[in-house]
Structure formats: structure tokens, C-alpha cells
Design a protein around this nucleic acid. Structure first.
Lengths: 195, 195
DNA sequence: ACCTGAACACCGTTCAAGT
DNA sequence: ACCTGAACACCGTTCAAGT
């Protein structure tokens, strides 16, 4: 079930209609509504199915907490970018077991790293927020070369109104992976200073 | 125009249909398509209209850079929470002048604070990502008391699978404003350490 | 118990036709 | 130049009816 759903979603979020999904499953027109209450439920199932985490690769030596967190969050982001519809879906849907497992791992690792009990929830949520924001933004900002050209045009024409971001070429920066890692390091530095 | 749009949106994102908007404007059925190319354009206009920034209040003494950034970002978040549809819209739409002005202020202030040129874009984007993620999450997680009750039930039943986040009561934490500020401080600590 | 097709109440958008 | 209404090609969901 969830497998077929995922296949369909691979061609876009708005591309998933109940009729089309039924077709894809070979089943008749509206038989889906026997197994599932609404379209939202289908989305919840598909979302959690995509976010299973196999864990960090086991090396001989013990991994430090930071590598553990970075690995899991980069994998989280990669999972969502592999299924672009998932990023815009995650913040507004039910939290399935795979998502909760990731949050648990995050909390457990931060706790082990010595983050104070009182800072734990704030730490978890700030990482969640960062990953969600980064992934949603990434998923929707690299649409076409046309957009890139438009941004370029805009930047030059905007030079006097927005000198700083024109100077840093903010809208042209396309090292998304590097920027994600860099910002993640900023945040981790703040959450567990000096570790 | 944008004013009337905003009024309509106050009753939900899916509540804005072209037909309903036309009605609200007194205008006839489909006259909108003369002034605007598509529904997407309406959304772009409404979004930027909502995000005008009046700037930090002028006090006698100079504000430090950190207060400036925090004020602008808290205001940004507040603007989006005041118009709940905007949070889910911002990451995927065109950047209007008001949005660019906020990014410019962000870059200018961070630069003034001594953030290295090479870190500037990463700093701006990481703050953007954090604010977007936090606001989208906030806007979609406080739906009803029923949800809260469900989360509670879930938590207790989940205690053994997810001990850490069950222990910190992650899903019950409702000090959204405090958590936002705390995570923002983490991030700013990392971006401009020791300042 | 499980599936089906027609039907309902909507959408965004187009387009010939009006003033 | 600006507006209009009917029409097109869709949606999610319901529901009586089938096996």
C-alpha cells in the first residue's frame, strides 16, 4: 500500500489524486475509501514510510555525538529531498513512528552530549526547525534555470536598494549542501558550546 | 487590492478562491483575470503585503546588533503567525520587496556585528531556515485541544519506545515563544561566537 | 466484507461576448 | 480598456448498489 503510494508521489504532490492512485493500484475507481478515511491519511502513511532511518554506519571506534547528529539530520534532509513532496508535508501532518524515532535519537544523543535537561526540548525543536526550514526552502528554490536568470537580473537591478545581499550574491549561492552543513554547525555550536 | 486579499485570507488559505475573492471585491465573477495572471500572483502580492517591517523602535542609546536581529526576526515570526496562511506560503513563492528588505537588514546587521564575509550567506540562510521552520511548525501544531489530548495519550503509551522525548514531554511543551527565543539564541551564539 | 460507478459540490482557468 | 457568464477539465468525497 504505502509502497504504491510512494511511487505515485514521485511525480509530484498535486499529482497524487485519489482517482489516479486507485488506477495505479489496479483497483477500481473509489475503492480506496474502504481502506482509508481520507486523502490526508494516505499522505500520513506515505510520509512516515519515507522517513525510516537505518542509523549511522558502525565504525570500529565510537562515534562522537556530533557526528551522530549530523549524520542523522543530513540523512533526514536527503530523504526529504529525494521525495520533494515530503518536505512541505512534514510540518503539518501527524508524527508517525519513524519520525518519532528520529526525534528520540536526537534527544538521546544531545542528552548524552551533556546538554542540560532544561535545554533539551529547545535543542531538539531548534534542530527540527532548522532542518524543516532548510529542506522546504531548498526544495522550492531550485526550480529552473529561468528562475536563476531572473534572480540575477533582479540582483543587479537591486544593487542600490539591497547592497549587502547583492554583494554577497545571496540569491545566486547554490552550494546548498555546504550551506546546510555550515548552518547546522552554527546551531550545534550554540546548543553545546565548547564540545 | 492587496488589502482586500489579506482580509479574505484571514479566514484560511484554502478559503481563498478566485470566485470568493471576486465576490468580496464587489466585482463580477471572473474579472480578476484581467488584473492578474493567475492565483499564484495574488498569493505573492498578499504575502509581501503582510511582511512590511517598520523597524526596531528608536531608543536614545544605540541598539546592539543582537537586539536588532532578535527584534526583526521575532517580528517576522509574529507577522506570519498573525496570518497563518503566510508561513506555509513563504518558502515557495517569489521574494517581494518587503521580504528582500528583511534579508538585507539581516545581512547588514550581521556584517556590522563582525561576521566574516565568507560566513555571511550561511548566517543569513540559517536564520531564515530557522525562522521558517519554527513558524511553519508552530502554525500547524496547535490546532486543537483534541490534538493535545491525543499527544498525551500517545506519549504515555510510547514511554518505552521513546523514553527520552517522553521524559522531556517534548510533544506537550507549549512555551512556543520561549522555545523560539532560546533556539534563536543558540543559533546566534554559533554565528557570532563570543559577541 | 469488499468493491463500483454515478453523482454532488466544488475548484482554476479560458474565452466568446458584452459595454 | 475593462468586465461578465457560461463552459471546460478537473478535484475530494458520498452513497446507493452490486458481488
Amino acid at each position: 500500500m504505502a509502497a504504491a503510494v510512494e511511487l505515485l508521489d514521485a511525480q509530484g504532490l498535486d499529482g497524487l489524486t485519489m482517482r489516479r492512485l486507485a488506477d495505479r493500484l489496479g483497483a477500481g475507481a473509489m475503492s480506496l475509501y474502504w481502506h482509508v478515511g481520507s486523502k490526508g491519511e494516505v499522505l500520513d502513511l506515505a510520509l512516515d514510510a519515507v522517513l525510516a532511518y537505518r542509523g549511522a554506519p558502525q565504525t570500529g571506534r565510537a562515534r562522537d555525538w556530533r557526528a551522530e547528529v549530523v549524520h542523522m539530520l543530513e540523512d533526514w534532509r536527503a530523504c526529504m529531498l529525494r521525495h520533494p513532496w515530503s518536505a512541505s508535508l512534514l510540518p503539518r501532518r501527524a508524527l508517525g513512528p519513524n519520525i518519532l524515532a528520529r526525534l528520540e535519537l536526537l534527544g538521546e544523543t544531545l542528552s548524552r552530549a551533556g546538554v542540560a535537561e532544561a535545554d533539551l526540548n529547545a535543542g531538539i525543536w531548534s534542530l527540527w526547525n532548522y532542518v524543516m526550514g532548510a529542506t522546504i526552502t531548498r526544495g522550492s528554490f531550485d526550480l529552473s534555470d529561468e528562475d536563476r536568470a531572473a534572480a540575477q537580473r533582479r540582483l543587479t537591478e537591486l544593487g542600490q536598494h539591497y547592497p549587502t545581499i547583492a554583494g554577497t550574491r545571496l540569491l545566486l549561492d547554490d552550494d546548498w549542501d555546504g550551506a546546510f552543513r555550515k548552518g547546522l554547525d552554527f546551531l550545534l555550536d550554540g546548543i553545546a558550546p565548547g564540545r
